[in-house]
């Protein structure tokens, strides 16, 4: 019997090595796999390279991993935010490396890795500081920049529901980087609100087929949902209000 289910978040993140390249899903706090990040913090792997759109918000989740000095290098598009004080302080002190990538190039580099594409020519960023030193090419009269695929050892993803084969559905804009990161990592670890029986997901609505998923752990319902229905009374930070 195929089962990718794990009993705990600690079991789900076991074996992540020092020096690993770790993709972490989420856009701001939406879709951020907070329980898996907390488990990675407890697990102890260090000297990590993290790929995420942002560089942490507030003091929890990715920001807590950064604060614990476990991340050597971060690859992202938008580190500076109103509540990115943990990253800001580390960056100003020269204690974290930053590779800044235009958001669409970041997404496409991740997608390319999962699709077996080594590199691609994109118009985004041509003629800017973020394309310096990169190969360029004129194709049908338009300038393009060569961007390499971006793969990872591990992806930590948050989805809404899964079955034991690892098929996933997401919820609203929390989908963001989940499907492409799931495909771009050697080991993809997913936290979901709920695991359903095999056959419990409508095959027409599966967003990430289980082939891209290695481990699944249920972490319980989000505070603003009950039986999958929105019940309100939440702030945009995801806290009950």
């Amino acid at each position: 019997m195929i089962s990718k289910l794990r009993n705990s978040v600690d079991e789900a993140v076991s074996g992540i090595a020092d020096g690993a390249v770790v993709m972490i899903g989420g856009f701001g706090r939406a879709g951020q796999p907070v329980e898996l990040i907390d488990a990675l913090l407890a697990q102890g792997a260090t000297d990590l390279t993290v790929i995420n759109n942002n560089a942490g918000n507030g003091d929890t989740g990715l920001a807590a991993l950064l604060a614990a000095r476990r991340v050597r290098r971060i690859i992202c598009s938008f580190p500076r935010q109103s509540d990115s004080h943990v990253f800001d302080a580390l960056y100003r002190a020269g204690e974290i490396e930053l590779e800044l990538v235009p958001q669409g190039n970041l997404a496409e580099r991740i997608r390319a890795a999962g699709a077996g594409i080594g590199a691609f020519f994109t118009p985004s960023g041509f003629g800017t500081a973020l394309a310096e030193g990169k190969e360029t090419r004129d194709i049908d009269g338009r300038p393009y920049v060569l961007e390499n695929a971006l793969r990872a050892d591990v992806a930590l993803v948050s989805a809404y529901r899964a079955d034991r084969w690892g098929n996933l559905v997401y919820r609203k804009t929390a989908r963001n980087f989940g499907p492409i990161m799931a495909a771009a990592a050697t080991t993809t670890i997913v936290q979901v609100d709920e695991v359903v029986e095999l056959g419990g997901l409508d095959p027409e609505t599966v967003v990430t087929p289980g082939i891209y998923v290695n481990r699944v752990v249920a972490v319980g319902e989000r505070a603003w949902l009950r039986d999958g229905e929105f019940v309100g009374a939440a702030s945009v930070e995801g806290a009950a209000s």
């Binding site: 938008f78 580190p79 500076r80 800001d88 800044l100 958001q103 985004s124």
Partner: peptide, 11 residues
């Protein structure tokens, strides 16, 4: 001294 952030602007 600024922290660079580009997001989706270039795309």
């Amino acid at each position: 001294d600024s922290i660079p952030a580009v997001g989706g602007a270039m795309d």
